[in-house]
Simulated scan of single mutants.
Amino acid sequence: MALLNFKKREKPGATPVNGQVEALLKDYSIEVMPRTAEKVEDFRTLLPEGTRVYIAHIEGTPIDEMVATAKRIANEGYPVMPHFPARIIKDRATLADWIARYQGEAGVDQALVLAGGVVTPHGDYDSAIGLLESGEFDKAGFKRLHVAGHPEGNKDIDPDGSITNVSAALKWKQDFSERTDAKMAIATQFAFDAKPIIAWADSLKEAGIDLPIHIGIAGPAKLQTLIKFAIACGVGPSLKVLQKRAMDVSKLLLPYEPNDVIAELAAHKAANPDFNITNVHFFPLGGIKSNANWAIEHGGASTRPANPA
Rank of each mutant, 00 (worst) to 15 (best):
A199K: 10
S127W: 09
G135T: 01
D175I: 03
T51H: 05
Y256T: 00
G60E: 07
K240G: 12
D64C: 11
M1I: 09
T225F: 02
I99P: 13
K155L: 15
L204D: 04
D160C: 02
E297F: 01
L25C: 11
R44D: 08
K39F: 06
T303W: 05
C233W: 04
N279S: 01
L47D: 12
H214I: 01
F84D: 11
I262A: 00
G287Y: 05
F6T: 02
V40A: 06
P48Q: 14
P258T: 12
I63Y: 05
L112Q: 10
M1G: 08
I296V: 04
L132A: 14
T120R: 10
K244C: 10
I55F: 10
A74W: 08
D126S: 15
R101C: 14
D158A: 05
R35A: 10
L112D: 14
H83F: 09
P255G: 02
A232M: 13
G104R: 10
A86E: 09
D124R: 08
S134K: 08
K222R: 10
T61N: 15
F176A: 07
I215D: 11
S290E: 11
D91E: 13
S290L: 05
I30R: 04
I227Y: 03
R144Y: 04
R179K: 13
R245P: 13
V119P: 01
E133D: 15
Y256M: 06
I198K: 04
G286S: 00
F84H: 11
I89C: 08
A68D: 14
G77S: 02
A221V: 03
A207Q: 15
Y28K: 09
L145V: 07
G13I: 11
D260H: 08
A207C: 07
A106Q: 14
F275A: 02
G77C: 03
V147Y: 03
E38C: 00
F283W: 15
F192N: 15
D210R: 07
T45A: 14
K183S: 13
P258M: 08
A140G: 00
V32T: 13
K240E: 12
H146S: 13
W172Y: 06
D124F: 01
R9Y: 03
L239Q: 01
A232W: 01
A221S: 03
I231K: 01
D274Q: 03
P16E: 02
E59A: 14
I198C: 00
L132P: 00
H281I: 03
K251N: 05
R245N: 15
S134C: 09
N293C: 08
A169F: 02
E136Q: 07
A199D: 11
F275D: 00
A74D: 06
A169G: 07
N291R: 11
G107D: 15
M33D: 04
F176T: 12
D138R: 12
Y125R: 06
T180Y: 09
E133P: 12
Y256E: 06
I215W: 10
N165M: 15
P48M: 15
W200M: 12
M33V: 05
L170A: 00
A230N: 06
G60N: 08
T94S: 07
A295L: 14
S302L: 06
P16M: 04
L242H: 12
W200Q: 04
P79W: 12
L95R: 04
I213A: 02
V21Q: 13
N293T: 05
K139L: 11
D64V: 08
N75M: 12
I277A: 14
R304S: 09
S238D: 09
K205L: 01
V280Q: 06
A96W: 01
I58E: 08
R92N: 13
K143S: 11
